[in-house]
């Protein structure tokens, strides 16, 4: 009888401890990686390679996502707002939604799928094929060589991507507004910029930097702790994408509270 009560409690306790261990492990991993950003040597070639991988090669998918999101947002807003004769608010709704929320979140989710998986798979394969141990035997700190440049690259590249996404998202809304919904071009653009505040853009860019850091952190952490051969690498790749996506959504709420809560 006692076992019936205690066994689930023990399982819950084990699960909690495992969760705490994992969170602590990620935190220590992040702190160590950050500390390497301030201690030479710096692997600038690796930083640049990761920066191009995150910033340049993610540009098409982020751009397409932003354009279509802006278009859909304008169209949906129009059909909704028409019920209240509030069509004139469409431009400001599009720009505020894109810059504050949809730009950083959708770009973050797209990059999480693309880059988080790539980092986890690449570093995970290096782990299970002894390449990370080989780095250590070759007088190279794997954290400094593999993790720190990727963290820095993603933290810098994602805000730049989001800036592009903001512009393209607004452009998508403008395309629908002017060519389909009958707005005058200058009136749509005036309405866009009249209600846009610096804080809207800045908050989105700060979110993007945090999301970039989280994506790189989860990708490298999952890869670095990978084990169990090809199957293990596959599992950690999935974990990296799922964990970074959930963290992006959760942190989006936290950051929105910080920026906009009255």
């Amino acid at each position: 009888m006692a076992a019936l009560i205690l066994d689930p409690l023990a399982a819950l306790g084990r699960l909690t401890l495992a969760g705490c261990r994992e969170v602590g492990g990620v935190a220590l991993f992040a702190l160590e990686a950050i500390s390497h950003l301030f201690r030479p040597p710096f692997y600038w070639r690796h930083f640049w390679r990761a920066f191009v991988q995150v910033g340049w090669f993610s540009l098409p998918v982020v751009a397409l996502t932003a354009v279509f999101t802006g278009m859909v947002l304008a169209l949906q807003s129009y059909t909704g707002f028409a019920r209240f004769n509030a069509q004139s608010a469409i431009a400001s709704v599009v720009v505020i939604s894109i810059t504050r929320e949809l730009g950083p979140v959708l770009a973050g989710l797209m990059v999480a799928g693309r880059i988080g998986a790539s980092f986890a798979a690449e570093i995970g394969t290096m782990r299970v094929t002894d390449q990370i141990d080989a780095l250590t035997t070759l007088s190279t700190n794997p954290m400094k060589y593999l993790v720190a440049p990727r963290l820095l690259a993603a933290t810098i590249a994602l805000p730049l991507l989001v800036l592009v996404a903001d512009i393209l998202g607004v452009m998508g809304g403008w395309l629908i507004g002017t060519y389909k919904l009958g707005f005058l071009s200058y009136a749509y653009l005036d309405a866009t910029f009249d209600y846009l505040q610096v804080q809207d853009v800045v908050s989105g860019l700060v979110k993007a930097a945090v999301f970039g850091f989280i994506i790189a952190l989860m990708g490298t952490w999952c890869g670095y702790t990978s084990k169990g051969g090809a199957q293990g690498v596959g599992r950690t790749t999935t974990t990296a994408v799922v964990a970074s996506s959930i963290l992006i959504l959760a942190l989006d709420y936290v950051l929105t509270e910080i920026f906009f809560a009255q």
Partner: peptide
């Protein structure tokens, strides 16, 4: 110290 890994572990 030098090390030759079982599967080479080439980058």
């Amino acid at each position: 110290i030098g090390m030759l890994f079982q599967n080479g572990a080439l980058f």
